[in-house]
Simulated assay, not measured.
Amino acid sequence: MMDGVFYTDRGKVRPHNEDSGGLYQNKSGQYLAVIADGMGGHKAGDVASNMATQMLQEKWQACVTIETPEQAEKWLVQMLDHINAAIYQLAQEKTECTGMGTTVVIALFADEFFTVAHIGDSRCYKYQNATLSQITNDHSLVNELVRSGEITKKDAKHHPQKNVVLKALGTQPQVGADVQSLSWDQEAIVLLCSDGLTDKVDDDDLINHLSQDVDISMIGKQLVDLANERGGEDNVSLVIMKHPIHEEKGEASC
């Protein structure tokens, strides 16, 4: 059994939480982790993020099993196309939802691989062998400026437009997700999070916490608390998944 936790927190400043997320199992016990950070309209950000999360939960819980990275990638692309169309249509139909959308980062976990899809600036990291790797590439204005050499990563932290995303789920009739599959090995840890965490917690902080020999539920709570201690101006959400350690080979668990 894999070990996983989900946390979401309103933070210290925002009047309500526009983040959504969760950790869900399909019929064969495989996990799907989701973080969505909503935006736009009068309280419509939480409409978009909740729609994305709920639709993913419903479809995943009805899914029997995913056996290959190709299947996983196809499933995620189809789901995101479907959800994008649903959010976009509602935004066109309801005035109070005009312009709403949501970032999303999803990780689908099988025994030997995990597949990540994302749109926007919510992130996925992998921590293994004392090394932290950022799996996703932010679809944001400042990230493009960093990539083009116009500003440094340090400048990006304090850029006045650091929260401008270039892609979001539901804001256009079609939107393309970045999708990739990676190896999923014993003792690997995967972190999904909204920018409410990464705006306040840097890579060194993440390494210090993820390297602790404590339950991941404690690590998750510490990271949320740290973001809030440093101002908590945004909602903070995260999922941490830890690969199980197989001490002996036996019958398959599913």
Score class of each variant (00 low, 15 high):
Asp3Phe: 00
Thr8Ile: 06
Asp9Ile: 07
Arg10Ile: 15
Pro15Thr: 10
Asn17Gly: 07
Asn17Phe: 09
Gly22Met: 13
Gly22Gln: 13
Leu23Val: 14
Tyr24Glu: 09
Gln25Cys: 10
Lys27Thr: 09
Ser28Thr: 14
Gln30Asp: 12
Leu32Gly: 04
Val34Ile: 15
His42Cys: 03
Asp46Phe: 02
Asp46Tyr: 03
Ser49Phe: 09
Thr53Pro: 05
Leu56Glu: 09
Gln61His: 02
Gln61Asn: 05
Ala62Ile: 04
Glu67His: 13
Thr68Asp: 12
Pro69Tyr: 06
Glu70Pro: 00
Gln71Ser: 15
Leu76Ile: 12
Val77Gly: 06
Gln78Met: 13
Leu80Thr: 09
Asp81Arg: 13
His82Trp: 11
Ile83Tyr: 07
Ile83Pro: 02
Ala85Asp: 11
Ala85Lys: 15
Leu90Cys: 08
Leu90Gly: 02
Glu93Tyr: 10
Met100Cys: 13
Val104Lys: 01
Val104Gly: 11
Val105Ile: 11
Phe109Cys: 12
Asp111Phe: 00
Glu112Leu: 04
Phe114Met: 06
Thr115Ser: 12
His118Phe: 01
Ile119Gly: 01
Gly120Asp: 08
Gly120Ser: 09
Asp121Arg: 13
Arg123Leu: 10
Arg123Phe: 10
Lys126Ala: 12
Gln128Asn: 14
Asn129Asp: 15
Ala130Gly: 00
Thr131Pro: 02
Thr131Asn: 14
Leu132Gly: 11
Ser133Val: 14
Gln134Met: 14
Gln134Tyr: 00
Asp138Gln: 08
Val142His: 02
Asn143Gly: 03
Leu145Ser: 04
Lys154Ala: 14
Ala156His: 08
Val164Ser: 01
Leu166Ser: 07
Leu169Val: 14
Thr171Glu: 09
Gln172Ala: 06
Pro173Ser: 04
Val175Gly: 04
Gly176Glu: 12
Asp178Met: 05
Val179Gln: 00
Ser183Pro: 10
Trp184Ser: 01
Gln186Gly: 12
Cys193His: 06
Asp195Val: 09
Leu197Glu: 05
Val201Pro: 04
Leu206Glu: 13
Leu206His: 12
Asn208Phe: 07
Asn208Tyr: 10
Gln212Leu: 14
Val214Pro: 00
Val214Cys: 08
Asp215Lys: 11
Asp215Met: 03
Met218Gln: 07
Ile219Pro: 02
Lys221Thr: 04
Gln222Cys: 01
Leu223Ile: 04
Asp225Phe: 07
Leu226Trp: 05
Glu229Ser: 14
Gly231His: 06
Gly232Arg: 07
Met241Ile: 15
His243Leu: 04
His243Trp: 00
Glu248Asn: 10
Glu248Ile: 03
Gly250Pro: 05
Ala252Glu: 10
Ser253Ile: 11
